[in-house]
Structure formats: C-alpha cells, structure tokens
Amino acid sequence: MEQYILMNKNTPLATVTLSDAGYLTDVLAIHTPEAFPIGIFTEQKAQLLDRLNQWWRSRIIPASRDGLRYVLHLYDVDSPAVLSKRSLGLSLSDQYWLQPVGSELNWNAVNFFTNDFSRELGEAFFQKESSRPAINPFTPDASSNGWLKKKWVRIDGATYLAKAGSAPLLQQPYNEVAADKLLTALEAPHVHYELIMENNKPLCLCKNFITADTEFVPAYFIKNIVPRSNNDSAYTHLLRCAEQLSIPGVDIFLQQMLCLDYLIENSDRHYGNFGFIRNVNTLKFLGPAPIFDNGTSLWCESLNTEIGQFLPALPFKETQKKQLALVKRHCLNEARLNVCQQLVEGVLQASSYLDKERVQRISEAVGSRVRGLQHYLASL
C-alpha cells in the first residue's frame, strides 16, 4: 500500500493509504478536519474511510464513459481510479490532491490552474486506436466524471471543457448551446457554451468557472449535512442544509434551475451536476454555481413520436411538471419567454444529424412548455 497525504492546496487533511487498484484503504492520521471536503469528515474511522472512497469515486472516470475500455488498455491499467492516482487526484473543479508521503511536492508546483497539463488522456477518448507506447498520465482528464466523452483544453490561456454527444444524433452539444441562449434571454446566471466541430462531429465548449481559490461542491455532498426531517421534502431539506452552511441565494437559484429544466425537459439533473462554490482559503460559501450541464434534455434520447412527453425527472420529483410546482416566486425575465421556441429551433437547425421533423417537434414542444410555464407563473 502506498501512503499519501490528502491535501487541500497546501493544507494537509489526512494521511491515507491507497491500493494498487487506486482506492483508499486506510486513514492513518487526521490533520485538519475543518478543511475536508464538505460532508465527508466524521470521527468514526470506518465511516470516514467509506465517505472518502465515495467522494473519491465521484472524481474518477465512470465505467459508463464511452471509449473507457480502449483507454484503460492504452494506459495498461485495470481501473480508472489508477489513472486518477497517477495524476495525484488533481482536478480543475477543486484543489484537493494527493501528496506522496516523503515527497517535497507542493500545490504551486503541481496544480492545473497555473501549470500546464497533458492533453493525451482526453484526446485518447476522441481518437482512433493508437499504438503510442508512452502516454503522460498527469492530467485533469483523469478526474472528470460523467458518461459523455470530454476533455480539458487550453485556448488563448484560458481553460475550457470540451464535451461530445452520444451517437447516433450527437444532440447534447446543441442542447447545451440552446440552454445557454434560453438562460441568457431569461437572465439567469449560467455557464456559457459554444459549439465547435472536430473531425466533422460537434463538441460544446465551456470555460472553467472554478479558479485556483474556489471549489465546486456538488449538491450531493450538501444534502446530508443535517438529518432529514419527516416533514421535509427533498427540496426543502436541501434548502435547510444550505441554510445550515450559510450559502446565499440558494432558493432563487433552484427555482430558476427548475424553470429551465421544465422548459427543456432535462432528464438528468442529478445532485452531481448542480451545486455551490466555496472559497478554499476562507472555507466560506460564495453562492450557487452557475447553471451548467444541460445537455441531456430536449428529448435527445426519445423517438420523434415521443417528443413533448414528460419523462422521469430528477432530483426532487418524478416529472418536470411536478417539480415546477416547487417554484413559488417570479425568478426569470418572463417577458422573454416567447423567444424560447425560436432560440431552440435556431440552434438545432444547425445540426446535420437532426432531421427537420425532429427539430420542428422539439421546437413546438418547447413552445408548449413556454405556455405551460407562463400559465403557472401567472397563477402565483
């Protein structure tokens, strides 16, 4: 077993051991419990180890990632956790990393915010098979989650995440751009997406909204900060947890997000793709992260004849219609709702993978959702 110090920038959190397979096997010492990832620390050692491994797994490439088997073969490893260990667990979403015990490595020397990183792992997911004998594993791509192919890139000194769509329609990148345009019109804080073509296939680009001094904390690690009362719904419980952590602006943010998800029928708004931003120096929360990761929407996995239907929803209720009922205030520029159908249609028309009937059905379904949202908001 190899020994590492789990670090938050240059603050030591705990001394741990990792197996050859890349998972935590023991917690040998606790150093700075207050700087641990949110929702992880407990004085019960077995529970702490379990929580740390759960947190660690949320940072590695999932088994569902398209192309993973080839990449593991290319790097000659059995598990994506090994890739993350080789890159010291470094990420562009936070400042946690693994310092080998006895080494003199420090945050300034290794972090990906101010230092360059290898692009080879990310590119391997997008390229055809290669026989390259040696590939640099030191990359934030080893700590990226999600099932769609993605890679970190640098453009004019800024860092962007590039994400692909799923075959055969490759619709998700267009959905991200469409959601961006809707949120811009509706004046809700969000991440900006742009579309690029690479090898004749669409990718969406978004600039990293995390800096060297902030971390993204998924809602998943917020929602268990306090025990859930029998009287609380999943929604009100999350609000209670956010209040406990003094996170500002959560209520209006969640309501804006729910309105968007209703409009675009987002079927994948799980607790991992929305969350909050914390200052890692002061350990104080700044507020919600801007709305991002809206690609699994607009009926991208539905047949043309199924477009417009209510699909199973996340994270609070079973359908987007039921989630809309959680909205209790006016939180958007409602005067701009009427442009939403046109904006979606304009984006999707640019795709050579979507037939005219599909684009029309999706656009009309968004128009129907606009009318439903307008009717609901008028009743408040």
Results as ranks from 00 to 15, higher is better:
Glu2Thr: 09
Asn8His: 14
Thr15Phe: 00
Leu18Lys: 11
Ser19Met: 05
Ala21Asp: 13
Ala21Tyr: 05
Asp26Lys: 14
His31Trp: 02
Glu34Ala: 14
Phe36Met: 07
Gly39Asn: 07
Ile40Cys: 06
Ala46Lys: 13
Arg51Val: 01
Arg59Trp: 04
Ile60Trp: 01
Leu74Asn: 00
Leu88Phe: 14
Gln95Thr: 10
Trp97His: 06
Trp97Cys: 04
Ser103Thr: 13
Ser103Gly: 12
Ala109Thr: 10
Asp116Trp: 10
Phe126Pro: 00
Phe126Asn: 06
Gln127Leu: 14
Arg132Thr: 15
Arg132Pro: 03
Asp141Trp: 04
Gly146Ser: 07
Leu148Arg: 15
Val153Lys: 11
Asp156Trp: 04
Ala158Pro: 06
Leu161His: 01
Ala162Cys: 09
Gly165Gln: 11
Gln171His: 13
Thr184Trp: 00
Ala185Val: 05
Ala185Trp: 02
Pro189Ala: 10
Val191His: 10
Glu194Asn: 11
Leu195Trp: 09
Ile196Gln: 07
Asn199Val: 01
Cys206Asn: 13
Phe209Met: 11
Thr211Trp: 09
Thr211Gly: 03
Glu215His: 00
Phe216Thr: 00
Ala219Phe: 04
Ala219Asn: 09
His237Cys: 03
Asp251Asn: 11
Leu254Ala: 08
Gln255Met: 12
Tyr262Cys: 05
Leu263Asn: 07
Asn266Ile: 10
Tyr271Ser: 08
Gly272Met: 07
Phe274Ser: 04
Phe276Asp: 08
Asn279Lys: 05
Asn279Trp: 03
Val280Ser: 13
Thr282Arg: 08
Phe285Asn: 09
Phe285Tyr: 14
Phe285Ala: 10
Ala289Cys: 13
Asn294Gly: 00
Asn294Val: 09
Thr319Val: 05
Ala335Lys: 12
Ala335His: 10
Leu337Gln: 06
Leu337Lys: 08
Asn338Pro: 00
Val339Thr: 15
Val344Met: 08
Val347Thr: 06
Glu357Cys: 05
Arg358Tyr: 03
Arg358Trp: 06
Val359Gln: 07
Gly367Trp: 08
Ser368Met: 07
Gly372Met: 08
Gln374Tyr: 02
Ala378Val: 03
Ala378Ser: 15
Leu380Ser: 01
